[in-house]
Amino acid sequence: MAKQTDGVSRRTFLASAAATGAVAAAGCTSNTGTETDGGLSGDINISGSSTVFPLAVAMREDFTAEEMHPNVDISVNSTGSGGGFTNYFCTGDTDFNNASRPIKGVEEGQCSDNDVTPVELKVATDALTVVVNNDADWFGEEGKECLTVEQLAEVWSAEDKPTTWSDVNSDWPDEEIQLYGPTDASGTFDYFIEEVIGEEGSHRTDYQSTEQDNQIINGVANSEYAIGYMGFAYYSENTDRVTALGIDNGDGCVKPTLDTASSGEYQPLSRPLFTYPAQSALAEEHVAEFARFWLENSTSESIVADEVGYVPNTEDERDEMLDRLDSAIEAASE
C-alpha cells in the first residue's frame, strides 16, 4: 500500500473481495457450543495449612495436566489451618481446607452456622521438623544433633523466654537465639503448642513468624544461632542447607525421617495431615473428582514421598478415606 499505483481497477477490487469471501468461507466451522470438549471444567478454591500446601500444589499440577483436566482451574492459598477454616472455608469461600491438625470444635461450630459440612480426609503423615544452622555445633556431634522435648519447650515457651543459648544450657554459646516459626494461624503452631509446650503454656511471640515455610529455612540457613520448625517437606527440599535436630522424648534421640515418622518412633512430633472438602462442594463433579484423585494418589511414593516429602497413606487408610468420600459425595448429591 506504500507505493503509488495508477489507480485500482474494478477488477483488482473484485478479485480481492472475492479472495476475502473465499477466506471467510474457509473460516467457518460448525458450532460445537462454548463448553469445552471432554474433560471436566470449573473452579476449585483451596485454602489452609502451609504444611499441606506443597502436597496440594503437586496434586493440582497432576490433576490439571494436559491429558487429565486442563480446564479445571484450581487456586491454592497458604493461609494456615486455622486462618483457612475461619476465614475462607467455614464462610463458604473455598471448597477445600487443608489442615495440619484436626478441625477444632469452634471451627466446626462456625462451619455449621454457615451450613458447611467438612469431610475429614487424612492425606499424609508429617514429621514436624526442628531445624538449626549447619554451623551450629553444640547440639551434639555431626549427624546426631539432638534436643530434648523439655529443652525445645523452654526455647519456645513464653514463660522462660531465653534470649541466649547459654540460658537454655550453660555449656552452649552465649549468643542470641534467632527464632523462626509459623504464625499463630498455622496448624503447625497449634500442634507444637499442644505437643511440646503444653495446652496451659503459651508460645512466645518475639520470633520471626511467617506462613511461608521456606522463609523459615532461609532464615535459619543464614544465621548461625537460629532455630526454627516447620513441616518435613520443606526440610526435605533443603537437607543440605539446614540441619534437622533429633528429638529426645525420653527414649533416646530420634531424627525426623519418613521412616521414623511412619513407624511412630519420631515422637511427639509425627502427625497426620488432612484436607477437608466441603460436603456441598462435592456435589459438583470436578470437585469430587479432584478429591478422589487426591486420595487415590495419597499412597503414591513418587508424589507424596519423593516429590513433596511426606509419609504416604497406607492402602488401608486410603480405602477407608475413599469410603468416607464416597458416602459424602452420595450425601451431597441427594
Binding site: V57, V76, N77
Partner: peptide
C-alpha cells in the same frame, strides 16, 4: 491466591504478575 490459574470469569480467583513475584519470593 498464592497458586492460581488462568481466570475464566468475573468471580475467578485472580493472580497478577507482581503477586506471582511475591509468591516466588516468599
Amino acid at each position: 491466591a498464592q497458586v492460581f490459574g488462568v481466570p475464566d470469569s468475573w468471580t475467578s480467583t485472580i493472580g497478577a504478575m507482581p503477586l506471582q513475584l511475591y509468591v516466588w519470593a516468599s
